Amino acid sequence: MNPNPDPEFSTEVGIVAFDAAGCITSFNHGAEKISGWPGELALSRPLDAIFRLPEEQISFQMLLPRPGRQKQIEVLHQNGEALTLLVTQVQLPSNEGDTVLVLSDQTEEQAEKKLQSYFLGNISHEFRTPLSALNASVELLLEDLGQLSQAEIAQLLNSIHFSVTGLQTLIDNLLESTSIEAGQFRIRRRKTNLHQVADEALHIMRPLLTRRQQTLTRYIPRQLPIVKVDSTRLVQVLVNLISNASKYSPIGETIELTLRVDGNSLHGMVADHGPGIPLETRTDIFRRYVRLGDKDEAQYGVGLGLSVVKAILEQHGGQISVADNPGGGSIFEFSLSLEEGEGELP
């Protein structure tokens, strides 16, 4: 028996062989990479000592699939982190002494599936809430228009505007996320007035800011050059960042928006006064389906906005990062190239 396949295959999967006593007899490079255990330490040790389970009441060997079958098993990496392995027991002739397992690390795939499952479960709520508010406001207008005061009508119209704005932002992010996943996301640079971009973003966000009694303070030089960017996508960047800042800042707080042009680069910043973002999660928040806040809080959305922001900026040859606001909260800083980059010029 030769439990080790060709080297190219070994780098992608783990191959482990063990004897009738449950001790490891072969441990390839792929198994080392997946488990975190060096081969020299794994050889001759019990299989269950190398592939430990989060629940110690049962052993790894007890969960193995039958020969020719495969099964997902959660184990612990050598450093203690949880892994999801797809384990296949190789069907061997009956006269072969050792048992051979093929291991594939499915941890990231499983995490993505869980995030997608959560996203699909949450998206219906995200649509239902503004649609219910829209329906209620329209019904009141239809049934009681003659009895409503001007102030009451204005309040209902503001509620409708707020709900439509929320739906528009959600749908925009869904469409952009779909095109990003399909590899069809592109930008179209046009001559753009940055003051008009900021004005449009504020117009879209005004219902949310008004409802939360918040003020957007703009630090934008009066004299700015006309630049070539995808103005629609840049508005979307500002809308998503201002929306996050609003949702995470206390009612009545001020949000700061800064834009400036430095040579061939546009630099921007949106600062809030919310709870801030832990250092260990600052990379993850720009992934799809990852939300900033508690998953039980409906206001925190479906986790698409920041991933769309990152994709738009990267298509412009730019980037985004997050840091602590010295006054409390977070600062999202971004930059993009004003040169042609990867975008399509009309």
Rank of each mutant, 00 (worst) to 15 (best):
residue 7 P to D: 03
residue 11 T to P: 05
residue 13 V to Y: 15
residue 17 A to R: 09
residue 18 F to K: 05
residue 18 F to I: 08
residue 20 A to Q: 15
residue 21 A to M: 09
residue 29 H to K: 14
residue 31 A to Y: 10
residue 32 E to H: 12
residue 33 K to W: 06
residue 41 L to H: 13
residue 43 L to R: 12
residue 48 D to N: 10
residue 53 L to W: 07
residue 53 L to Y: 04
residue 56 E to S: 05
residue 63 L to K: 10
residue 66 R to E: 06
residue 66 R to I: 08
residue 67 P to N: 01
residue 68 G to Y: 09
residue 71 K to P: 01
residue 74 E to P: 04
residue 76 L to G: 02
residue 78 Q to H: 11
residue 79 N to L: 04
residue 80 G to A: 09
residue 82 A to M: 12
residue 82 A to S: 09
residue 82 A to G: 11
residue 90 V to S: 05
residue 96 E to V: 09
residue 97 G to C: 11
residue 97 G to D: 13
residue 101 L to R: 02
residue 108 E to Q: 11
residue 110 Q to T: 14
residue 111 A to S: 11
residue 115 L to G: 11
residue 117 S to K: 12
residue 118 Y to K: 09
residue 124 S to F: 06
residue 127 F to Q: 13
residue 133 A to N: 13
residue 139 E to L: 07
residue 142 L to Q: 14
residue 146 G to N: 14
residue 152 E to R: 03
residue 155 Q to C: 09
residue 155 Q to V: 15
residue 156 L to N: 02
residue 158 N to I: 03
residue 164 V to T: 08
residue 167 L to Y: 01
residue 169 T to N: 09
residue 170 L to H: 08
residue 171 I to R: 04
residue 172 D to N: 13
residue 173 N to M: 04
residue 177 S to V: 02
residue 181 E to F: 14
residue 183 G to Y: 05
residue 183 G to H: 09
residue 183 G to L: 05
residue 185 F to S: 03
residue 190 R to Q: 12
residue 197 V to T: 14
residue 199 D to Q: 15
residue 202 L to D: 12
residue 203 H to C: 10
residue 208 L to A: 14
residue 216 L to I: 13
residue 222 R to C: 00
residue 225 P to E: 08
residue 226 I to Y: 07
residue 226 I to R: 03
residue 234 L to V: 01
residue 237 V to D: 07
residue 244 N to M: 00
residue 248 Y to P: 05
residue 250 P to Q: 11
residue 252 G to S: 04
residue 256 E to I: 07
residue 256 E to L: 10
residue 256 E to G: 03
residue 264 N to G: 08
residue 270 V to C: 02
residue 278 P to I: 07
residue 278 P to E: 11
residue 279 L to S: 12
residue 281 T to V: 14
residue 288 R to K: 15
residue 294 D to Q: 14
residue 296 D to T: 08
residue 299 Q to I: 07
residue 302 V to H: 12
residue 305 G to V: 00
residue 314 E to M: 03
residue 319 Q to V: 01
residue 319 Q to I: 02
residue 322 V to H: 01
residue 325 N to E: 05
residue 325 N to H: 13
residue 326 P to G: 01
residue 328 G to D: 02
residue 330 S to Y: 01
residue 344 E to D: 15
residue 346 P to R: 11
